[in-house]
Amino acid sequence: MAKRIRKGIGARVAGFLHDWSIPRQIAGESVMSTAARSRTSETLRPRLEEADRVGTGICPFCAVGCGQLIYAKQGRPIHVEGDPRSPVNQGTLCPKGAGTLGMLLSPERVSTVLYRAPRATEWEVKPLDWAMERIAQRTKRARDETFAETLPDGRRVNHTLGLGSLGGATMDNEENYLIKKLFGGGLGMLNIENQARI
């Protein structure tokens, strides 16, 4: 800052005029290349240069299925853009897709397990392993207490209506497959639904 103040006014004006891109653009230089150049732009580097990894993503919002390229540095995403190879979107994204990085890095994101005991007024943070074991126990108990193997006249139903699962349309095919397989094929749950019907 001190250096800038010592700089002469004349030199600053001349420097500004030399650096100012508008006169060059008015003179007809291409905005796509030289006319956009300035001293500041000379020092800018694309953040993609810092990426140590890039992979193919599919935009997580609507069902158009736009291809994305996700760039990461040390395991953390630093940039998401449309995949120019994709015949679906040819590099374009809508405002939602273009904001994907903001979703991944949102300060509102929760990354710990939260637990609310019956009648409690606040959440508590709990270990993941504790929660998984308790959910497994709760699931088994609710299944066993609500299971019907047959109707009283002997017709086999092998089901429980006391457990439900909602969701799937935001998830992968492999995830949906295991949900239906475990909950339906393993536990006998029938109340399995997702956003396809709403």
Binding site: C62, A63, A169, T170, Y177, A196
Partner: peptide, 17 residues
């Protein structure tokens, strides 16, 4: 024109009752 990223997939490989 379906709404969610894999709503078609979750109908094909259904998390449906």
């Amino acid at each position: 024109l379906r709404g969610h990223v894999s709503i078609q997939g979750s109908t094909d490989i259904p998390t449906l009752y």
